[in-house]
Computed example of a mutant assay.
Amino acid sequence: MKAISLTEKFQLINEHWRPKVVAELNGQAVKLVKFEGTFPWHHHDREDELFLVWRGAMTVEFRDRVVALKAGEMCVVPKGIEHRTKAESEAEVLIFEPAATRNTGNVEDEIFTAPDDVKL
């Protein structure tokens, strides 16, 4: 039980699309990630995902709509829904999801699939 400085933790991240775990609770992980560019289309069979923008702006694209998010806004992507994330310039984002969730869901991608359970 200690305070976690998100500003300090984000300063430790020097790559895009590689979530880092900063906290865990009830089988869920709180992950920090920096986005820039466009992530591949994917879905998660069993997990919902929550994206909360800390700094910058991003979009969550669905096949039938786009949800634009800026700092202080969030979006929940229900399990099974195909989506991709995008940021025109660097965005700092918190992700809340079950701890074992692979960032690319049903897709294995040599560039975007991040190692599991990397902690800050």
Rank of each mutant, 00 (worst) to 15 (best):
M58W: 13
L50Y: 02
F51W: 08
D109R: 02
G56V: 10
V93L: 12
K79G: 00
A57I: 02
A87H: 12
I4K: 14
N106R: 04
L32K: 06
D45K: 00
H16V: 10
F62G: 13
F96T: 05
S89H: 10
A3L: 15
S89V: 12
V22A: 14
N103T: 11
R65C: 04
W41Y: 04
F112L: 06
L69Q: 11
A29S: 13
L52M: 14
D45Q: 10
K20A: 11
T85C: 15
L25T: 13
K86S: 09
A29C: 06
H43T: 03
K119N: 12
F96C: 08
A3G: 15
E73D: 11
A57P: 01
F35N: 11
F62H: 08
G105A: 05
G72P: 02
T38W: 01
A68D: 12
V67P: 08
V66D: 07
R18K: 09
G37A: 04
E61H: 13
P115K: 14
L25K: 14
A114D: 11
E73R: 13
R63M: 12
T113Y: 04
L94M: 14
N14P: 00
T104H: 05
D117V: 04
D116V: 03
L120R: 03
V30T: 15
A100H: 15
E82A: 10
A68L: 07
W41K: 08
